[in-house]
Computed example of a mutant assay.
Amino acid sequence: MTVPPPPDGRKPGDQAPEDHNPWSPPSPGPAPAHWAPYPRAPISVPQPHNGMGIAALVLGIVGVVLGLLVILFWMSWLPALLAVIFGCVGLSQARKGLATNKAMAVAGVVLGGVGLLTAIGGAVFTVVVVKKAADKARAEVGKVKASASAADKARHLSFGESYTFEDGLKVTVAKPEPFIPDAYAHGHAKGNKAVQVTVTVVNTGTERVEVETGLPDVNDADGASAELVIDGSGRQKVITGYVLPGRRAVGKYAFSLPPDAADKVEVEFSPDAMRWKDAYWKGPTN
């Protein structure tokens, strides 16, 4: 059995000093050593991932602004769509505790949705406006074509009818009459049929008007141009010079037609070929 050491610190077997008082308290030993506190490692706190929410908010604002500018609606859909996507990602991170800006993410999703709606509205509005403009343009073109067709139709007449040009000259072409050239006629071949075309021009305006081209063109039934007949009989008269207001000028012209194409002719005439389109008179010669 092990014997515990005496309280005075003596080893077993050592002799006690003479003045030792066995009943005195033990002498105090050396002071206990003081241990330095163990250093603690710093606890790292993860940073919040707020980038998605911020990006969603910024892109949502950009999408709404571009959508409100009608001419830039086609640019608003992309930032608005990205705002919705980034906002949804930001909300997911906020639910997991990885982000602290849930409100920004929600605002980005809402603004992105508004931007998409404005982009769709701008597209619909643009389509409607363009369609109306196109319809209006087509209607105007149709009116112009109809007016041109009506004007062109009005310039095609029968013999004896009148057409008034924009300078106020009213032109009438009578039905062609047979014409017998003299022996010295030029432009008439033997066997052809010669006809005389009478053109009457009346000035219905208030100012005198000059007749720049008083010579008509005649086409036979086959569409070929007839040849002008010139002789020395003095029966032909060319309209030249000015026609005074309320006055008239009469021109008479002879043309030679092939016998097989002389049953129907067309007379083409304009008092000023540089300014006004020709009018046409058509009909049989018999």
Rank of each mutant, 00 (worst) to 15 (best):
V3K: 13
P12F: 04
G13Q: 07
A16H: 11
P17W: 01
S24I: 07
P25N: 13
P28F: 07
G29V: 10
G29P: 10
Y38N: 11
P39H: 15
I43W: 10
P46L: 08
N50R: 02
A55I: 12
A56C: 03
G60R: 03
I61Q: 03
L66G: 01
G67S: 12
S76D: 05
A83M: 10
I85Y: 03
F86E: 00
S92W: 00
V106L: 13
V110Q: 08
L111E: 12
V114W: 09
L117K: 09
A119W: 07
A134W: 09
K136M: 13
A150M: 06
A151Q: 12
D167Q: 06
A174C: 08
I180A: 15
A183F: 11
A185F: 01
G187P: 11
K190N: 09
K190Q: 15
V195P: 08
T213P: 00
L215W: 11
P216L: 14
D222P: 02
A224M: 14
V229F: 12
I230A: 13
I230D: 03
G232K: 13
S233M: 14
S233F: 10
V243S: 04
L244I: 04
V250L: 02
F255A: 02
S256Y: 03
P259Q: 05
A262N: 12
K264S: 13
E268Q: 13
F269M: 10
A273R: 04
D278R: 01
K282H: 06
